[in-house]
Design a protein around this nucleic acid. Structure first.
Lengths: 132, 132
DNA sequence: TACCAATGTCAGACATAGTCTAAACCGCCA
DNA sequence: TGGCGGTTTAGACTATGTCTGACATTGGTA
């Protein structure tokens, strides 16, 4: 919470209660929430926050590089506090999205893609998470 | 066109003018059109077709396995007549989506993912297509 | 302290993707 | 002719996301 305020200040962003509520949740979750989920969670600590402020803050954090937006789900963008390169596993039953560390998979054969300048890539896996 | 009618019949689907217009376009394009693009193109041959019929037909073709739906673009699902396994390259300037043949890339390291039952996967590449 | 400009927030309007519904329509068969 | 499925249609509806213009808050300056 105090950390969150500090982070916002470091970015040169005024730490308003609304921004703190959004950042505090979204930067401290392992999940991949949609804007709607962020809105709901932010209202727990800042009940009057509006949809517009949530979108503003999320887009701000993406611009500042603290957050990544992925279009992994149908219908809604999800936000990911993990900004390092990584892959994604999507559980087709629960809809849950799990991060897969970059080192866990290797992609080879890029030399076949001479026509393309590749700036970024990731593997998207789908299936079911085993009970654990 | 006659082929398209035959394909629909084989699926046990009544070949109506609307379905023919949709299928004829979407099964014969190399691109990755959104529902909206399919609507516009279908109206060239069937001017009265409605949005609902386009969605109905597209979903029908997906159910029947003739088409795949991908959430690669923000805001809209795209349809892909290529139902074989393959990867995707997304041109970040033009937004164009290109198919990458399955054999052109290899993904290794799946043994690190013991917690997951993987049913399907693909590599998503982003960057710029070189002039050719 | 008082003021002002800049910055933020808010509700609601708007745009767009997609689904659903109820009525009309069509081809077929009696 | 009349009826019966299956199909299409316009429009209502939902949801995600952006935009706008009014209002609130903040920080700086005197």
């Amino acid at each position: 919470m105090n950390d969150t305020i500090e982070i916002l200040r470091t970015l040169g962003v005024q730490p308003t209660p609304q921004r703190i509520a959004v950042a505090d949740y979204v930067l401290n979750t392992e999940g991949h929430p949609s804007a709607d989920e962020v809105l709901a969670r932010s209202r727990e600590t800042c009940p009057t926050i509006s949809r517009a402020s949530v979108y503003n803050t999320l887009n701000l954090l993406v611009d500042k590089g603290l957050l990544k937006a992925h279009t992994l789900r149908e219908g809604a963008v999800v936000f990911d506090r993990n900004t390092e390169r990584h892959h994604h596993f999507i559980d087709e039953e629960s809809g849950e999205i799990h991060d897969i560390p970059w080192e866990h998979l290797a992609v080879s054969g890029g030399s076949n893609l001479a026509d393309f300048q590749i700036r970024d890539y990731q593997v998207i896996l789908r299936g079911r998470k085993k009970e654990s």
